[in-house]
Design a protein around this nucleic acid. Structure first.
Ligand SMILES: [Mn+2]
Ligand SMILES: [Mn+2]
Ligand SMILES: [Mn+2]
Ligand SMILES: [Mn+2]
Lengths: 221, 221
DNA sequence: CTCGATTTTTAGATAAGTCTAAAAATTAAT
DNA sequence: ATTAATTTTTAGACTTATCTAAAAATCGAG
């Protein structure tokens, strides 16, 4: 059995490891979770003893296969619930992350598999992240960060990396949503902001450096 | 803010008080919750300090208006989630109580009100209990315990008082469900069991004393 | 009304998860 | 290779929720 806090730590490790491609360090984990490094040290010892992560003193942690399996189960639940809330309960994509933060810890394999079936085995959450299937398989998105693109590039918004309501409401205001078509018209080197055209609209929209580092694009050209 | 355990204690007090009609005592609460009397004493002191119950040493507790409001919110969430699981996710009435035991603690007024709207403001859970509305109003069921009836009485099953999967699977086996028509054919004083006819079927069904004390009937005659 | 049984409370202990402050290890810069 | 800055761990404390064992209060039979 894993407690809610253990699950939150596992998930944070999964995210900070960038899908298990690098090690995760104590201070980064503390920032992500919103706790103190000393608390993290205690928790990683515990998760390590349970065989969910491998931990070397002073050298960070990485998920074991078992830990990765657990993390993906939590991520699956989080994303399925988010989609249910948006698609069926008509909540906004800016409202659902915190609810899913609670729902992801509901412990029932049966329930989540029925929810998956009810929604006909969806592939992505409302923020464009892929949903692991019942076997824990997840196809990683093939997309690029908006901030890496050049003037003239075009594409569809495939994913947003920041699930805070502040950011998502900012996108609402700009009339930007998943699958909006984006064309990069100008890059302002002064503050690294970008002028983009959304869905062929007349007027341009300026996106800050912060924003374009949280938006992923599926390139058309 | 109320923790999950605080909420579970409040709900248990509500049930043991029979909808706030009588005081609730330490040992009964301990049995219901599955903890020890000493733990209950600690918890009722805490709930009392928060103004959710009134507590007199050695004389049991009762819910305050605030405590009753809180309890009904939890009961509302429990029953709405149960209905969602049965009606939309196609789970059996014998599978959902434990899941709802977790879901009832999800903290979001918006979410639960949307779920209510999604199901078009249902009046009863899959076990026949009334669902409090968004204002905390709940119309109590008008029905009688099957064990109180006499030979010749007829009625529809309106509610079951025991949400354990053991009991509900027993009813499944007997082909008894909510709204089944019951006619009492014979009462065996030897062991207080009852022979009943279900939905006018040819063969009779014997229900134990234990079972007929968990089934409520809306009388026809 | 009194005494024994029952119920409830108190006292003290434990486990999980967190914190602060101090010590130790690692890393980076001369 | 030292030394200074940074990172991480340890030590000790606190909170919540639980327990056992013992003390105190209440109840109920005669
Ligand atoms: Mn999310
Ligand atoms: Mn979470
Ligand atoms: Mn139930
Ligand atoms: Mn509960």
């Amino acid at each position: 059995m894993t407690s809610t806090t253990e699950e939150n730590h596992l998930k944070a490790i999964y995210y900070l490891s960038k899908d298990c491609t690098k090690r995760v360090f104590t201070n980064d984990l503390a920032d992500k979770i919103g706790s103190k490094p000393s608390s993290i040290t205690d928790m990683v010892k515990k998760l390590s003893k349970k065989g969910l992560i491998s931990y070397q003193k002073y050298k960070g942690v990485e998920l074991t296969e078992l830990g990765k399996t657990y993390s993906l189960k939590i991520i699956r639940k989080h994303r399925l619930w988010e989609l249910f809330l948006v698609k069926h309960l008509k909540l906004g994509w800016d409202e659902v992350h915190d609810m899913a933060e609670q729902l992801e810890h509901i412990d029932s394999e049966t329930l989540i598999n029925r929810l998956d079936a009810f929604m006909e085995y969806p592939s992505h959450c409302p923020h464009g992240d892929p949903i692991p299937d019942a076997n824990g398989k997840m196809r990683l998105n093939d997309n690029v960060l908006l901030s890496k693109l050049r003037v003239g590039n075009m594409g569809l918004i495939s994913c947003v990396d920041d699930n805070s309501s502040a950011f998502l409401q900012y996108l609402n205001k700009m009339n930007i949503e998943l699958n909006s078509e984006i064309r990069i018209e100008e890059i302002l080197t002064y503050d690294n902001s970008m002028q983009v055209r959304v869905n062929n609209s007349m007027d341009l929209i300026t996106l800050s450096e912060k924003a374009i580092n949280s938006i992923y694009i599926k390139l058309i050209s």
